[in-house]
Amino acid sequence: MKAAVLVFPGSNCDRDLAVAFRAAGFQVDMVWHKDQDLPAGTDIVGIPGGFSFGDYLRCGAIAARSPIVSALKRHVEKGGYAIGICNGFQVLLETGLLPGALMRNAGLRFMCRSVPLEIATTASDFTNGYDQGAVISLPVAHHDGNYQATDDIRRALQGEDRIALRYQSDVNGSVDRIAGILSENRRVLGLMPHPERAADEKLGLTDGQAMFTSLAASVVDA
């Protein structure tokens, strides 16, 4: 059971993500952005939060064109798992692996606090450890988390039950209060809140833990 955590210049949640994966039983490799391939046998790729390439041009834009992201695309096309958190979500949107875009928060403020979130679907290996409609608390820390998509994409996300998490109340202007979405095959999750920062009792927040443990259970079964 192997996880690969991608590391870009400016990533700053990479080690937290590695800790959360390890706690759930994964063996973790840290993979530099210039690498051409993922380690053999990688089950899931974690794209961490931070400020890859200083958020230059657009958040996640330069990271999305790095060599390791070509390997990530091949992994996802083969049906591999991936989770992109915060800046990692921005990278997944910039690669086109998930639809839509993240824009500057509607209130223009950098939001840094724990927020209540609704589990909008349990039909994914990331969220099947929660109860449908459960409200959990996870930290957010972002300036560009305002999820926007065309009406067609919004309808597809709704119709295909691909909205994984919703803010309980508006945080950043995101359409339909979307905090996280799934790919068509439900094996890629992008989300703005940080489950990896809420996955250890010593930190006082544990609501993110189930995301990693349920994933571990699914990978073992697969």
Binding site: L57, A61, I62, R65, L93, P99, G100, A101, M103, Q148
Partner: peptide, 9 residues
């Protein structure tokens, strides 16, 4: 198309 603009938005 490849980098400078995000043609989604």
């Amino acid at each position: 198309e490849a980098l400078l603009a995000n043609t989604v938005i």
